[in-house]
Nucleic acid binder design. Structure first.
Ligand SMILES: [Mn+2]
Ligand SMILES: [Mn+2]
Ligand SMILES: [Zn+2]
Ligand SMILES: [Zn+2]
Lengths: 144, 144
DNA sequence: ATGTATTTTGATAATCATTCTCAATTAGGA
DNA sequence: TCCTAATTGAGAATGATTATCAAAATACAT
């Protein structure tokens, strides 16, 4: 039921912000929530176009940005020039292992690292708003 | 003397790779090694242009990339659309605190975080080649 | 249900940092 | 010095994203 929850959060955001519910936004929301994680804009656009050829690229870009603003998605860049999005629930967080061989992206959580980050920030008088931790290298399959 | 050491490492790289030592490369090297850290290509280009108006932007881009290849520099992107470079000595490493208020970039090292990253990678059978850890937020000055 | 003001859409143009192209220049070994 | 390959600078190209804008759709009041 996580999926319908995210859809609901987005719909509430639309109302709260005085935006409008449109056929395109609902379609993109549906595709996005059922897509694999870390999809690029281009990938999602191609997937959509197969069933909804009339939806424009700009609308996909704009809508994904709205997803991020509403809190149901994270925007990320892994250095390949593509902007990627993943849907995520409130409070969830994880970091990424990015395989430079095959492009596979694995996820991990490490509470201790997060705590150490916080203590580093404290010692600098710095107030953390967000962070990015990415490990680049070869996945188990690619290293052989 | 760290500076002359880096210059020497780059010159050896040039020879080893069969490249040529040029007036432009020496000038850019000199400016780069004496510039503040985390300079964007644009910033370095403007600094250079004041004294050497004939050096082209493309040459600056190409030369900074060579610095990174030779190991005397790191290329980095903090999400503002600019590619930045910092000169760094062999074996050195640090991560960054990026102030979203004033753009200030602070540096830190944390051996424990690095070790935990390695153990995360191990547990995934992943071979780390590089990593990126950036903390975004407000610096001590901007948070007041 | 109908009208109306406002938002949204899709096609296309614009953006913008970076990279590419290529003729002219330069470096450096023979 | 000569020769060849590398380098340079100017401008074009790139490519993902964003802006523009007329047409379409939505939300709400009548
Ligand atoms: Mn993820
Ligand atoms: Mn640094
Ligand atoms: Zn892989
Ligand atoms: Zn600041």
């Amino acid at each position: 039921m996580k999926r319908e929850k995210k859809a609901e959060v987005f719909r509430e955001f639309i109302v709260r912000e005085g935006l409008k519910s449109t056929r395109q936004r609902e379609i993109i929301l549906d595709f996005f929530l059922s897509s694999k994680r870390h999809m690029s804009v281009e990938e999602l656009y191609r997937k959509l176009r197969a069933r909804h050829p009339s939806i424009g690229y700009a609308t996909v870009c704009r809508t994904l940005k709205l997803f991020a603003q509403s809190g149901i998605a994270h925007e990320m860049r892994f250095g390949d020039g593509q902007t990627r999005y993943e849907h995520i629930a409130e409070g969830e967080h994880h970091d990424h292992l990015v395989c430079t061989g095959c492009g596979t992206i694995a996820e991990f959580e490490n509470k201790t690292i997060e705590e150490l980050q916080a203590s580093v920030a404290d010692s600098h008088g710095f107030l953390i708003h967000s962070h990015k931790l990415e490990l680049y290298g070869l996945c188990a399959r690619c290293r052989k």
